[in-house]
Design a protein around this nucleic acid. Structure first.
Lengths: 354, 354
DNA sequence: TTGAAAGCGTTACCAT
DNA sequence: ATGGTAACGCTTTCAA
């Protein structure tokens, strides 16, 4: 059906070898024949068969991404789409394809082993690393080039990653609130086995410790990044004797819930309670203009996707270069959601706070 | 490196042919050898090389999805991730891979032609169909099996699709509001060249027409599904002499903005202004429980993804069966965001409404 | 029930 | 600068 090398070379009166070389830009072919080959190839609408190419070269020009989904909560982390968009954009520009595997979180190990053995990808991206993630040693053992979006604490092997400085971001956000006079600061964080959540918690704790504020475990919550999480958390805080005057939120989505809970209670965000979010640049929530609604430690997950793609392609094409470890810094953008600790809420405090 | 058929058959003392047959479940191999083959294959951790398999069979066992992104607004439709999760889940279960191409919306035609010629996918899913979408005739011409998630009006070719009944959903939502006494009903819709938006507008208009309510073009807005869209729209409505008492929203995200605008104005959603959303089951926004916050015409985009995947795989494996056209119905779930048209807003009306 | 060998459409090695 | 041919690792046809 589709014209192949054989047809094309026959038409040209050249060998397949020469035609292949001409098409792939090898230097040892004369410029005149190259031009002629290109010409006829275009006329005949020739496109090389990728299946054959992949078998012959042993490379697939494909990057694998694994999207873990759980059967329980039918929820996909919304930052995933943005990340993929960033990475995929770079792949396309460099002739790579993207293979996406949706996998339920059972038999992870077997899945990765099979993926490696089948040879459908030249390298892969590890998403959502947990603390001490088994995938790092596993993929290393399998000899599969991989890069982690994020990091995995407690892993002693050297590995490639692109990460945003979560610890510093949350230290800065918390310090900012402390500077405003807040002492009761809540943290709405991701599940505690996630590496990013651990680092954010560390930054938060570190900022408190620096000021001599003792952390209150009841103010540090770990859950899925839903609106309901923020809403319910805030409602439960209101039951406390000394409700927090500020909240640091690992995503803008629970912050939407926090905002709603405040409104329900007749309170104003940024006046009665301050809120800072980690903003992954979910553009459907960012309100443009000079004064954004939320104060945010902001970093674009789409940009992270681009970086990850670039680094991984480079890894594949330069296998024995040293390990690549890229750190990104988030910017603190001050918006309307923060302000000084309100007096009436301070008055609730029962003296346990410095 | 990885063990291949040759190694495996050598170890077994059988021919590659027999081993291949045993592994692929051909009937003409004795049960005893099949068991032995399976056994040893597992021991040797054998996995067939997909690249070779694809060349030999001429099939890739891969489905292509194209994610169009625009350079201008760095925004990815959040329902995309859920859809992919649904489709990918079904692919995995059936031994198919998913290839995702991120493509900027230039030279669409060339992109699809190249994709077809390279032969990296056995079939593809068309996302975000527009009215009279060129991809339907294009892919038909190319002989590439494809299925549309949604439909494309004004196309005269028969084609395969899975769509939710958008027209009926919005007719029902609008009728529901009319029943409650609302007469000034706004529609916050997607871009008007999108097919789903056209169908939703048609359903909305039809419901109004049935009651003899004349539609007001100023109440029908088309834009991207962002929070800012809902917020700004609502603010602009407040400037009107007869502000709408109800809003139908094409996604829950602008509805979040509507809710915020109402609060800012000291109004209560579900009391002063009614809101109905089309809920694609973005789980980070659904608040569980028996009484959801939003009244919604609800359909799960993840389920739609599953259906699309099933139908497309069936198409590929049964090429000359008749065209598959699947219609899904959305459920109307009544929540707290709707109520009777408030008197004080009725009083604003200047008589142009029936 | 089993096996030998051709074929899938490229690339890459070795000649010329 | 060009060409012949083996190789990539499977499936599939034909024979036995």
């Amino acid at each position: 059906m589709a014209t192949n090398l054989k047809d094309l070379s026959a038409k040209l009166g050249l060998s397949q070898t020469t035609v292949s070389r001409a098409l792939n830009g090898y230097p040892e072919v004369s410029e005149s024949t190259r031009l002629r080959v290109m010409q006829v190839a275009k006329e005949m609408n020739y496109a090389p068969n990728a299946r054959a190419k992949r078998l012959a070269t042993g490379r697939t020009m494909t990057i694998g991404h694994v999207l873990p989904v759980s059967k329980k909560h039918e929820m996909v982390n919304p930052i995933f789409a943005d990340f993929i968009a960033g990475a995929g954009e770079v792949y396309s520009a460099n002739g790579y394809d993207l293979q996406l595997s949706v996998v339920e979180d059972v038999d992870e190990e077997g899945f990765y082993r099979r993926l490696a053995a089948r040879g459908t990808v030249d390298g892969m991206v590890v998403h959502g690393p947990k603390v001490n993630d088994m995938r790092v040693p596993l993929l290393t053992e399998l000899g599969m080039p991989f890069i982690v979006h994020g990091r995995s604490s407690d892993v002693d092997l050297p590995y490639n990653f692109v990460d945003v400085n979560n610890r510093r971001s949350f230290e800065r956000a918390t310090s900012f609130l402390l500077d405003l006079g807040h002492r009761r600061i809540a943290l709405l964080n991701g599940f505690s086995d996630m590496d990013f959540a651990a680092r954010r918690a560390a930054g938060y704790s570190s900022a408190l410790a620096t000021r001599g504020v003792s952390p209150d475990p009841d103010l540090m919550l770990h859950d899925e990044m839903t609106e309901a999480f923020g809403y319910d958390a805030m409602r439960s805080f209101f039951e406390m004797d000394n409700s927090p005057t500020a909240v640091v939120c690992s995503s803008i989505i629970p912050a939407i819930g926090v905002r709603r809970a405040l409104w329900d209670a007749g309170l104003v965000m940024g006046k009665d309670v301050s809120v800072i979010v980690h903003d992954d640049d979910l553009s459907y929530f960012r309100n443009g203009g000079d004064v954004p609604e939320f104060t945010a430690v902001r970093s674009s997950v789409r940009e992270a996707g681009r970086r990850v793609g670039e680094v991984l392609m480079d890894m594949i094409e330069t296998p024995d270069a040293p390990v690549r470890q890229v750190m990104l810094e988030a910017a603190l953008l001050v918006g309307q959601s923060t302000g000084p600790a309100p007096a009436f809420l301070d008055a609730q405090n029962n003296g346990t706070v410095t």
